[in-house]
Amino acid sequence: MRRDHALEILKPLVDEQIVVAVYQTLFDWMVIHPRDLNYVATGAMGQASSHALGLALANPQREVLVFDGDGSLLMNLGSLVSIANAAPANLHHFVFVNGVYEVNGAHPTPGAGKLDFVGLARAAGYVDALEFTDIDLFEAGVADFLARPGPTLAVMHIEAGEPYPRDYAYIHSAAARESFRRALAAD
């Protein structure tokens, strides 16, 4: 499935939730669904899931969605165990799997095509984990996935879509962080 098509399906389901996204998925999402509750400042590669855990624990009344990448999550696999141990019911973890470090030259990730993120999440102690290989099945199942108590993980087998611009200056800007801070305080 194309990543941007999957994000278009997610768009109407995302309103008050915090979305923590990384790299090309983030750049796509910023165009498809620009909003102040997009948490764009993860700073260091691999850290999205840990930011999401902090947000989920500090904002238990709000759902937190992570749009992670396979290369990113591989840098922070221990976070699966930390998240499962903390057990935030409001955290839903999507892993967009394309088997490459897309913004770093498209080199293959270790274990590409063999690694089982669903198995890793289940073994770590996530409440539930599943995978979507087909856009129609994703469209049919994603609302149910989001309705389940977390922490849950969905693996998305994706390919690139439109070449959305990589706006690094914005995601690292003080303005982006302040927009998120204000949106969080708006309740």
Binding site: Y39, G43, L53, L55, A58, G78
Partner: peptide
């Protein structure tokens, strides 16, 4: 480093 991110994310509220 997970903790760095967790503490940073918590600080937003």
């Amino acid at each position: 480093d997970e903790g760095v991110s967790i503490c940073g994310a918590m600080s937003y509220n």
